[in-house]
Simulated scan of single mutants.
Amino acid sequence: MPVRQRHLRPVVADLPQTGLPTVNWASVLVSLLLFLASAATGSLLLLYRAQRLRSRERAYGLDTPYLRQIGAGIGAAAGLAVGALILYFAVHTNRFDLIEWVGRSSYLLVAGAAGGHILILVYAAIHIVQEERAWNNGGGSPGDGTLGRRRLEQLSHLIGEHRDYTDFKSRDDEVVEDLTGVLGGPLMNTRHDLARIPFYGYLGTVCGILLMAQELGHIGEATETFKVLGSMASGLVLAFRTTLVALLTFLPLRKVTDYLMRRLGRLEEKWTKARYEVAGSGRRS
């Protein structure tokens, strides 16, 4: 008589499978809400900054195309980066440690600050390129809605208003300084504020070293040594990685800021040189 084989069903197959998808969908929903909230917050913050730039430039007859859209886009990208970092740290955290989260906040500070600085650099780059093209248009007058056009109009007004060259030169220097400050002011503020980014990295470094010191105090037996060393390694990674991220963010932004300031300086020299050209032609006429 042949032996009947019994088909044993796995025990796991009898377990209800409804709990796991529910947890996954809840996690996905929370993640999406976090991303949406972060993107909306970043977009609104930089949209407000773009609105302040727009109100300031209107006093000089400027109009940056798509400035609000640019600010909202950069803010949304920075917000998504912040949300992704928060989600990543939440998933890869076994226990809550206040010092560790304070150190991790340096990543969030760097990402948020970088978004605001990028908006200013994009804004300045758009106008510097526009002003250079308008001023070097083959000998013609710069078009409307440019600082170069405003420069020539004010220069002509000063020539007819001042007969003494000393007064004329002094007043014209103020005009050039004022026009240069429209773009130079935000660039100078960005250059000054960029110095804070390395300190955000140092915050993570200090917290990482403090975590290592705390773990050293937990060594009680030889069997716990490897566990403590593993915890110390995470603190060491936090200490160096935050500084590295801050420096890798700071250096390119600082280079771009210096480059734009040099181009603005050359544009200022051209505006100053126009004083002698226009004034000389005015005297000859």
Rank of each mutant, 00 (worst) to 15 (best):
residue 232 M to A: 11
residue 164 D to N: 11
residue 218 H to Q: 15
residue 148 G to A: 09
residue 115 G to T: 02
residue 148 G to E: 00
residue 180 T to N: 08
residue 101 W to K: 05
residue 175 V to N: 02
residue 97 D to W: 01
residue 198 P to I: 13
residue 196 R to W: 13
residue 186 P to W: 09
residue 153 E to K: 07
residue 190 T to M: 06
residue 190 T to N: 10
residue 178 D to K: 08
residue 125 A to V: 01
residue 114 A to V: 13
residue 120 I to N: 03
residue 157 H to W: 12
residue 177 E to C: 03
residue 222 A to T: 15
residue 200 Y to A: 10
residue 118 I to S: 08
residue 133 R to I: 09
residue 149 R to T: 00
residue 188 M to Y: 09
residue 137 N to R: 13
residue 132 E to K: 05
residue 124 A to E: 06
residue 203 L to P: 10
residue 105 S to D: 03
residue 108 L to S: 06
residue 120 I to K: 06
residue 224 E to I: 04
residue 178 D to Y: 00
residue 220 G to D: 15
residue 155 L to E: 02
residue 133 R to S: 11
residue 200 Y to E: 10
residue 232 M to E: 11
residue 161 E to Y: 12
residue 230 G to V: 07
residue 192 H to T: 14
residue 155 L to W: 04
residue 171 R to C: 02
residue 106 S to M: 08
residue 100 E to Y: 12
residue 171 R to F: 00
residue 228 V to E: 11
residue 128 I to W: 00
residue 98 L to R: 09
residue 168 F to W: 12
residue 197 I to S: 04
residue 188 M to W: 06
residue 225 T to Y: 15
residue 112 G to L: 09
residue 200 Y to K: 11
residue 148 G to V: 00
residue 108 L to W: 07
residue 200 Y to I: 08
residue 121 L to K: 01
residue 228 V to W: 02
residue 210 L to S: 13
